[in-house]
Computed example of a mutant assay.
Amino acid sequence: MTEATDPAAISPEAIKAALQAEFPGWRVMRTDQLRWWALCGPLPADRYHEQDVVEADTPEALRRELRRLKQAKS
């Protein structure tokens, strides 16, 4: 596996930028405990029922959950 295809070789900042580019409106962060979060808020009153926080153990799991939310909204 090359560095370009090894997820462990990609910097957290590059992963964060890629996720934010794929999911506009979501802010992505990685905590000091290595958890990944995406936040989309505060939401206006007419969207208060929508999920605005997602957390996951890995960036891949965060991406899956954000895709699921995006599909459910469509």
Rank of each mutant, 00 (worst) to 15 (best):
M1V: 07
M1E: 12
M1R: 11
T2E: 14
E3N: 15
E3P: 14
A4N: 14
A4M: 13
T5I: 14
T5F: 14
T5S: 15
D6K: 04
D6V: 04
P7Q: 08
A8R: 10
A8T: 07
A8W: 07
A8V: 05
A9L: 03
A9P: 06
A9Y: 06
A9C: 11
I10N: 04
I10P: 03
I10Q: 08
I10L: 10
S11P: 11
P12V: 04
P12M: 01
P12Y: 03
E13N: 13
E13D: 14
A14S: 15
A14V: 13
I15P: 09
I15R: 15
K16F: 04
K16L: 07
A17S: 09
A17C: 11
A17R: 08
A18D: 05
A18K: 05
L19M: 06
L19D: 02
L19S: 03
L19T: 00
L19E: 00
Q20I: 05
Q20C: 09
A21G: 12
A21H: 12
A21T: 12
E22V: 03
E22A: 08
E22D: 10
F23K: 04
P24M: 06
P24Y: 05
G25W: 00
G25K: 01
G25L: 00
G25H: 02
W26V: 01
W26H: 02
R27S: 10
R27L: 04
R27G: 07
R27H: 10
V28Q: 00
V28N: 00
M29V: 10
M29K: 10
M29Y: 09
M29P: 02
R30M: 12
R30S: 06
R30G: 03
T31N: 02
T31M: 04
T31K: 01
T31E: 03
T31D: 04
L34Y: 13
L34P: 09
L34Q: 15
R35I: 14
W36N: 01
W36T: 03
W37T: 07
W37F: 08
W37Y: 12
A38W: 05
A38P: 11
A38F: 02
L39D: 07
L39R: 08
L39I: 08
G41Q: 11
G41A: 11
P42Y: 02
P42T: 03
P42E: 01
L43R: 09
L43G: 04
L43M: 04
P44G: 06
P44W: 10
P44C: 08
D46Y: 13
D46P: 09
D46N: 10
R47M: 06
Y48K: 15
H49K: 12
H49N: 14
E50G: 07
Q51L: 14
Q51E: 12
Q51P: 13
D52P: 00
D52R: 06
V53Y: 13
V53M: 14
V54N: 00
V54S: 05
V54W: 01
D57W: 13
T58C: 06
P59H: 13
P59N: 13
E60H: 11
L62G: 01
L62M: 06
R63K: 10
R63Q: 02
R63Y: 03
R64V: 06
E65W: 00
E65N: 01
L66D: 00
L66Q: 00
R67D: 07
R67S: 05
R68M: 02
R68G: 02
L69G: 13
L69E: 03
L69Q: 12
K70R: 15
Q71S: 11
Q71Y: 14
A72F: 05
A72N: 08
K73Y: 08
K73W: 09
K73S: 05
